[in-house]
Simulated assay, not measured.
Amino acid sequence: MNNALLVIAVLSAICGICHCLDHPQGRIVGGEVVSAHFLPYQVSLRRRNSINSAYAHSCGGAILDERTIVTAAHCVYNRLEHNFIVVAGSEVRTGMDGGIVSRVEKLVPHELYNASITDNDIALIFISTPLPLGYRKIATIELADEQPAVGTLGTVSGWGLTRENGFSSAQLQQVQVPLVDSTVCQTAYNWRPITESMLCAAAPGGGKDACDGDSGGPLVVDNKLVGIVSWGEGCARADYPGVYASVPHFRAWIAEQRAKYVSLLTD
């Protein structure tokens, strides 16, 4: 049995016994259950608190290539690689559902990540076992070249609470939210900066949103990755847009890190 299959077998056994640990974070508010066939780039980042504990969903992520996942820096900052696995091609928050598991080889949060204002909130995850792209429900997503116009609908997806202070969804969900002008977003968050590395999205009147355990998950427009779930005030509140790391802003950084670490892993 190879390493990938061994990991799958062990994780499946653990989840079958204890149903895995529910993570207190994570949500899609106002959304709908969706098949991973329509979101083949979505992954579940699962973390354990100790060597003896089960892996539980903690954040989302998106597949850039067979060895590279993009997520939020706050999902992995100051944490150890051996406490993470990546599950691709699955629609469930716990267990496997036929998904593919890979161990994490390297965590690379942005070197200028600022936890106090959640700035530069992006990280790359390099995995030890290449993902079988094209197999079942696993595929890459292209990076957006530029930020779409204000009002453009984006699709954000993940597992988690379906309302503020509610319960996590067992199934993958998605919701559409329009992009919001940065000045409007800054007015809402007048106590902290909305920097050029951020973009905002919100449904008029609230009721649709993503944050916390959906952190690191993708915001997609026209099948291109535009944003990474980062932070926000509460859940789907009318006066507070969701804030995302702007993928177009980080394209050069992503390319630099991929070139550096993928070559090291394959040497």
Rank of each mutant, 00 (worst) to 15 (best):
A202I: 01
L225P: 10
E233I: 04
V226Y: 07
D209N: 13
P193N: 04
Y189V: 06
C185V: 12
P204F: 05
G207Q: 05
G216F: 11
C211A: 13
N223V: 02
Y240C: 00
Y244G: 04
M198Y: 02
S197P: 00
S215D: 03
C211D: 10
G207C: 08
G205V: 14
V226N: 05
D239F: 03
A236G: 14
D209T: 06
C200Y: 04
D212P: 00
N223L: 13
P241F: 02
V229T: 14
T187I: 07
L199F: 05
V220G: 05
N223G: 08
V226D: 05
D209E: 13
M198S: 03
C211V: 06
C185P: 13
P204H: 01
A238V: 12
V226F: 12
D214M: 02
P218H: 00
A236M: 04
G206C: 12
E196R: 15
N223Y: 11
A245M: 09
Y244R: 06
G217R: 08
P241L: 00
G207P: 07
D222W: 01
I228W: 11
S215N: 06
A236H: 12
C185Y: 03
A238E: 14
L225H: 06
G213Y: 09
V226H: 05
V229G: 03
P193E: 02
E233P: 00
V229N: 00
C235T: 09
D239P: 00
T195G: 09
A188K: 02
G216D: 03
A238M: 07
D239E: 15
V226G: 02
P193A: 06
G205E: 10
G207K: 07
Y244I: 11
T195N: 11
I228S: 04
P218D: 01
G213S: 15
S197R: 15
M198K: 03
R237V: 01
I228A: 07
Y244C: 11
A238F: 12
G234E: 14
A210T: 15
A201T: 13
I228E: 08
P241C: 02
A201S: 11
D212R: 13
T195E: 09
S197F: 05
A238C: 09
A203G: 00
V221S: 03
G217I: 05
I228C: 10
V220I: 15
G216S: 08
R192C: 03
S215F: 12
G205F: 10
Y189G: 04
A202R: 14
G206E: 08
Q186E: 06
A236S: 11
G234S: 14
T195Y: 08
L199I: 15
M198G: 04
V184G: 00
G213V: 12
D214N: 09
G234M: 15
C185Q: 05
D209G: 14
A202E: 01
V184Q: 03
A236N: 09
W231V: 11
P241D: 01
R237L: 15
A238R: 13
I194R: 02
E196I: 08
